[in-house]
Nucleic acid binder design. Structure first.
Length: 441
RNA sequence: GUGGGCGUGGCCUAGCGGUUAAGGCGCCAGGUUGUGGCCCUGGAGAUCGAGGGUUCAAAUCCCUCCGUCCACCCCA
């Protein structure tokens, strides 16, 4: 459809919708978002991770040169654009490369290592949307940069494990694998390709593509006709160098000691080229696509790729939308938005004036107030107050204005009293104090 | 990027070739003069996703596009 010109616009205005694969987060959704955010922040604080936020767009090279030539993300999913100054920019398609860029830019290598940070923000990928997959999604991610010991792997994985548990989710699993490093993985990939090359004609189309682009994924094919090839394929664990083997063994020992119930999945592979050694993924046991709630891995070559000194790193990303899908599915109790303390119904223009004064005074002491709509009947305003679950309604009509008072109605027990307009804030505070005392007792 | 299902007022749904597209929720207004949650009455609100075609006649059939959902792919 064509952009409406000024003439046609008056005839037939264009109807707009949120772009494909994006969503509005409405007031009723916010309790879930705040809940996930709060748990993430709380858990990160307990693990000593500080918040970092980077721009949602970067010089395109930050992502294009790091994720890997043949990856889907680089080949077809990045939102690329040129700004008015002719800079090539990319909306961030993942959350790690940009943090590493910041690590280098701000000289964090000279701080005590590792640097422990987390972020919460939007990620953009031009992909075909479906349930649990969006073109803009929100990711909570964690990065520990500057220490390559398996102890840090264990820490990051334990953080993810703790996070998911504290969200109140159950029936999920943590899969773990190692994919070797720059030394041993290329040797394995060579062996894998040598084994697969003669078998290619008998394999599915996807596998023939994987052979070129992402050979590790050959081992994860579900096609019936590819299974025999998988069964006879060389195994990565037979190719691991001693360093990788030992790293993985120590990680498992740490995780076991921390009672993280991982399971090893030799077919677990990541979509970005920069991952080394440890990779992991957390997803619910319930069947279904797009189920991964959080996943990550070690990226010991990434800092160097972005121009820094050789520096190890590890992190994960977890998708808010998918977590919330599971929170809703499992009916995890999430605190609703707090209702307003007071609703002010006002019946005359003079009453409206007094309503505004009372509202300001009550808000000043920290209570929530909704002021009713001008010209609405008292009945309509009280109906609204009830719908909003306000604890009190203040009624202001001609009588109240004349005496500078307010009729304060308790909407829970229906009691009503007339008090001076100036006393409304104190009355509300007193009532919420008695309420919390009752709860304590 | 591939294959398939679906698309009716803000939301959920009925209607599946033929007079003014029906119902529920929600919204608005009333049920006597300033009082909520239940109930009752009334009202507003839909060019039946968009465009094209078939037909005397289309929300109902066909095509294209868009959106959405499911599987694959990929991933958070």
């Amino acid at each position: 459809m064509r952009e409406p010109t000024i003439e046609t616009e008056t005839v037939k205005p264009q109807k707009y919708a949120a772009p494909r694969g994006t969503a509005d987060i409405l007031p009723e959704d916010w309790p879930y978002w705040l809940y996930v955010r709060d748990v993430a922040e709380r858990v990160c604080a307990r693990f000593g991770y500080g918040r970092i936020e980077t721009p949602i767009f970067e010089q395109a090279g930050v992502f294009l040169r790091t994720a890997g030539e043949g990856t889907d993300i680089v080949e077809k999913e990045v939102y690329l654009f040129e700004d008015r100054g002719r800079d090539r920019l990319a909306l961030r398609p993942e959350g790690t490369a940009n943090v590493v860029r910041a690590y280098i830019e701000h000289g964090m290598a000279s701080l005590p290592q590792p640097i422990r940070v987390f972020y919460i923000g939007p990620i953009f990928r031009y992909d075909r949307p479906q349930a649990g997959r969006y073109r803009q999604h929100t990711q909570f991610g964690v990065e520990a940069i500057g220490d390559g010991d398996a102890l840090v792997d264990a820490e990051v994985i334990e953080l993810l494990w703790t996070f998911v548990r504290e969200l109140g989710l159950r029936d999920y699993t943590l899969k773990l694998n190692t994919i070797g490093d720059q030394v041993c993985r290329p040797q394995f990939v060579d062996a894998l390709r040598a084994y697969y090359r003669p078998l290619l004609p008998g394999l599915c189309e996807d596998c023939r593509a994987r052979f070129e682009k992402n050979p590790l994924r050959l081992l994860d094919c579900k096609e019936e006709r590819c299974q025999s090839a998988i069964a006879g394929a060389p195994r990565l664990r037979d190719y691991l160098c001693d360093a990788c083997r030992e790293h993985f063994a120590r990680l498992q020992a740490y995780l076991t000691a921390q009672a993280v119930a991982y399971e090893i999945d030799e077919r677990l592979v990541r979509g970005l080229d920069y991952y080394t050694r440890t990779v992991f993924e957390c997803h619910p046991l319930q069947e279904g696509a797009q189920s991964s709630m959080g996943s990550g891995g070690r990226y010991d070559g990434l800092v160097e790729l972005l121009g820094g000194a050789p520096t190890p790193g590890i992190g994960f990303g977890a998708g808010f939308e998918r977590l919330i899908i599971n929170i809703k599915r499992q009916e995890v109790a999430v605190a609703p938005a707090p209702p307003p303390e007071l609703y002010i119904a006002h019946l005359t223009p003079e009453a409206s004036m007094l309503a505004l004064e009372v509202a300001a005074a009550v808000r000043a002491v920290g209570c929530g107030v909704i002021v009713g709509g001008a010209g609405r009947s008292l009945k309509a305003q009280l109906r609204h107050a009830n719908a909003k679950q306000a604890r009190y309604a203040a009624i202001i009509g001609a009588e109240e204005v004349a005496s500078q008072t307010v009729t304060l109605r308790n909407l829970v027990d229906h009691s009503e009293l007339r008090i001076a307009a100036d006393d409304v804030p104190d009355a509300l505070l007193a009532s919420s104090a008695t309420k919390s005392e009752r709860i304590d007792a």
